[in-house]
Write a protein that binds this DNA or RNA. Structure first.
Lengths: 221, 221, 221, 221
DNA sequence: TATGAATGAGTGTTCATTCAT
DNA sequence: TATGAATGAACACTCATTCAT
């Protein structure tokens, strides 16, 4: 039941055409789904996606055996794309603290409008375990840079920063229509709480239980 | 199938007969709905609630003309009950800052497991406008106390604090199963950012647009 | 299952009071049901009737084991009452033709506003077999008077007149709101078709089938 | 459970595949709905129609977004089909009066068994405004022909004739099972009342009120 | 006996997924 | 392979009737 790849090596010319077509379809679906999921969240009717993709239901389900598979694929893509951009931006920034705050700014400005994405933060922390790892690694970089520069509060973990970003994303999602820009105040407050001048130790988080969902960084420091 | 009688079997066989039984049913429904909504969110099948209440569909709909009415009732109740407790706790606390942090602690410890409640935070900020006002008033009290005591950062609004509490609730909801207690670190960070020692001015939030949902306190310097 | 009459001869004073109360209730129910059925037809919620009667569902169902029983009772009453009035009016009228037309006028003016009544015409021709017989007898009287006076078309049966009255009732029901008074034109047309000057014989109606509902006069003359 | 294939198995395996099958399903639904609505009226369970069509609920709702849409479609179809036939029959008839009576005959013979159709007469006069207009135009033709030939009573309006036909339909519906053919007598009586030899003027109908439902022709002397 | 709360099968409708073409 | 029609288990809600009090 996974994306059918049993390679029947007949009709090589048609084959290639098919492939290209299929690829184009796949792209169209992902594109449309991205828009629709972002606008209306993960509960939209699959038909809406099929319609906007210009493909039939069968084609959609050929590429993605399940609505959830499609959603996951779309989110992973967008997540990755966004992270890559963020990564580049961070590397181009001299000042570690500026890199950190820039990351938050960019995240909240661009990602937080995506309803499905924010839903996935609330549900599992990230679209997938791989996404979570990629993000955690990146955020850990930012964290380390700040820490080494003596700018970041002692004891702040990657998990803390991840959580902060998802939390602020949800705020943006909930308030940006009615109170645009208000989230910037909370971002500022949180970042100020992260500054090295805060010397009180942070509380230990409890031990991690058995069954863990891919919620991201567990504990590093 | 009759109304779960595992409670106080001490009361006399009732003088105002039906009223008592009906009230018991109503209570059973609210109780069951509370549990079910908390566990599975606002989208659960009404039948599930009926089943868990030990009543038929008709009874449920006699007491609550709509699923949404039931949900609203349940949430308002829980919200109010929680706020009352929080209010009392705050009044019993000398130190203003401790009162503020205590409020956050209690909120996140007790409310945040409730899926439907957190959904309502994400959707409209509170179960109802009345709830929002009650909460805003209370939080404003906490804020003023801290401000007067010179403990709270200048420029922090009630809306900021409301937003912080709802957003941290969502975080608790999302992470407390897998990383119990981790939210306490985020709370600490945010609270430290709220301390008076942070003297940088907070950014102005943009102008409020036309149609505002009842998302809570708007702005009160 | 019929209106409980098993005479337990205990407590004679209370008994009488009960009786009176019960009778009052029964009357209230019939009264309210009459109004409600007339206004909204036979499909109204029984609760509406109970509410307007000021009695509980149990009481209602004690007096009338079924919604249909209540409907039948109400309709029979109204039907009988109406027929009695019509009877008296007819007896007070010298001219046979005037008596006949007066009957139609009165019927259409007063009965045809009753939704449930007209529904019952459409369904079974009359609220009950007894009603049908009463009406048929009365109409037959009118018919005979006209016939004897040489005013009525030869061959017109009681059944014809009955059918005409139910048909015109339905017209009133359907049009009196939007085109008040239009039914009078059709009444006039039909009555003119009933005049003795129409000498063409009427078609024979086919043989009556096995299972006959109480639709009224079968064939006379 | 697949679409009842007891019909023409002669057509080639279809070139425009799905369309044909879907059309067959649509037809099956309309067919089944026609039967069921005619037998049991507009209140039948949609599931019954689905069952009798041999399709699932989803298919039914794919073709008709609402039960009412289905009902409307079915009734409009039957109404139109009947009117077309009636139209042709009328055009093929020399004698204007015969055309008029033939129309009534045909109407009452074919349409009046249809419970849903007659319900729609009682409710709004016709399945739709368009249907009503078509019918009114046609009846007006018949009326004019008769009038010009000096056969129709002066002052008879199209609305009068429309009303007569719908009301007689209801009569047929109510009595044809128990007293088949009796309606023909009533029809004859009414038609005789419509003859030109009736010279008494018809009563004016009152002024038309504000909100009129599509009950058919309004007034055309 | 009167009350009105409780019952639960039934209603119109939706939507993720399958499958014939 | 692409299509979109078909599926049917859910869903929220109603209402004639019963039954505990």
């Amino acid at each position: 039941m996974t994306s059918a790849d049993q390679s029947t090596p007949t009709q090589p010319p048609a084959k290639r055409a098919r492939r290209a077509d299929a690829e184009r379809n796949r792209a169209a679906i992902i594109e449309a789904a991205g828009v629709v999921f972002a606008e209306r969240g993960g509960t939209v009717d699959v038909r809406e996606i099929a319609r906007r993709s210009g493909v039939g239901m069968g084609t959609l389900y050929r590429h993605f055996p399940t609505k959830d598979d499609l959603l996951a694929t779309v989110l992973e893509r967008e997540f990755t794309c966004w992270l890559t951009t963020a990564h580049q931006a961070a590397e181009a920034t001299e000042d570690p603290w500026e890199a950190l705050t820039g990351f938050f700014e960019q995240t909240l400005t661009h990602q937080a409008r995506n309803r499905a994405m924010v839903e996935s933060y609330a549900a599992t922390g990230a679209p997938s375990r791989a996404c979570a790892q990629y993000r955690d690694a990146f955020i850990d970089e930012l964290r380390t840079r700040c820490l080494n520069a003596g700018l970041l509060r002692a004891g702040v973990t990657t998990a803390d920063l991840v959580l902060l970003s998802t939390s602020l994303s949800q705020i943006v999602q909930a308030t940006d229509d009615s109170h645009p820009g208000q989230w910037r105040r909370l971002l500022r407050i949180s970042l100020d709480g992260l500054r090295a001048r805060n010397t009180e130790p942070l509380p230990e988080s409890g031990p991690e239980p058995e069954s863990v969902r891919h919620v991201g960084a567990s504990a590093n420091d």
